[in-house]
Simulated assay, not measured.
Amino acid sequence: MNLKHIESFLAIVRCGSFRKAAAQLGISQPALSQHLGHLEAELGGSLIQRRNNGCRPTQAGLALIPHAESLLRAAARAQALFKSNALYLGASSNIGVYLLQPLLRQYLDRHPTERVELSIGTNPVIADRLSNAELDVALMEWWDDRPGFTAHLWREEELLLIAPPGHPWCGRSSIDREELRGCALLGGEPGSGTWRIIQTELAAVSASLSLAASLGSTEAVKRAVQAGLGVSIVLASAVEHELRDGRMCATRIRDLELKKRLHLAYRETLLENCPARRFVRFLMSSPSSALRPKHRACERAPDQSLSPIRGEP
């Protein structure tokens, strides 16, 4: 499939006019029409519907648009491998919002000529974008061992049980897991893996636990907890400021260490001197990292919780 033909098709869609699209691309209208004709013949269907007041995509054209855009992005990324100083980085929401920013600042201080394009999204979306070569490196809350990629344990983050001020659990350094029986928890981002960890680690009481609501993000969960709508289990790093300011309280579950393992993943074929490879080396040497190859037994990472727990020294 000729990328010039794809580019011409998208220009027609954007401009709604053959004349404007040809001017935008710097080619003649006959050449533009020829590009579209070749693409329609190759795909076996009409892509653009011509009208007196302009043109618009057919149903087949509408269906093609996201694939056409993806093809051009992939082509641009392929070209960038050899001449770009850009790093295309992805992170699941909690990592991108609460953990990554200081590390990015340190990295850019060391490599001021490089440019970072950061995409933050749900874990499944980031994993798919990495697989589709839209990202160079991804930091995620789980990794599903896709072929062709290297994955490492990046760090372990503590999970805390959070509650609004005045809750009976406030001021307690820990609670017994039986006190959770029948508890309704507020959930955050779907697909983050936190609920799976809870069900595994709290097997004895997990059957009695339920999600009172799925709020879509940790920020929404924090606001709901502060408003007294319920309790939740979140990354300790996500509630550092709220705990310090007394806007919520947190406790741990006695005789249980709830930890989330965060992963660094990248394509095995990264060029040695590209920005992505440099960023991987930077993360591997960072004091906050506990990087080990995922298939090897990992040493326990230091407790990286920065959040004071009310009732503890």
Rank of each mutant, 00 (worst) to 15 (best):
A68H: 01
H5S: 14
F18R: 04
A86E: 07
F82G: 07
R19F: 13
S17W: 11
L25H: 01
R115N: 09
D128K: 15
A21V: 13
H38R: 08
T113V: 12
E7H: 02
R56C: 13
L62P: 07
G16C: 09
P30F: 04
A31P: 05
P30D: 01
E42P: 09
L104D: 07
T113Q: 14
Y98F: 13
S92N: 00
S46W: 10
Q24K: 12
D136G: 01
S28V: 07
A138D: 01
W142I: 09
E40T: 10
N85R: 08
I6L: 04
L81Y: 02
R129P: 12
E141L: 10
Y98T: 07
L47Q: 02
Q59T: 13
G90D: 02
P124D: 01
L108R: 01
R77K: 11
F18Q: 10
Y88C: 04
E117K: 05
L103W: 10
A91D: 00
P124M: 01
L130T: 01
L118C: 06
R51A: 14
R56V: 13
L118D: 04
S33T: 06
L139V: 00
I27Y: 05
S84G: 07
T113H: 14
S93A: 15
A60L: 07
A74R: 03
S131M: 15
L130K: 00
N2K: 03
Q106I: 00
Q79A: 09
E7R: 05
R51N: 10
A133F: 14
R19A: 13
A133Q: 15
A21L: 12
R146L: 04
A68F: 03
T122W: 09
G90P: 05
R105L: 11
L130I: 00
R77I: 01
L104K: 08
E141V: 07
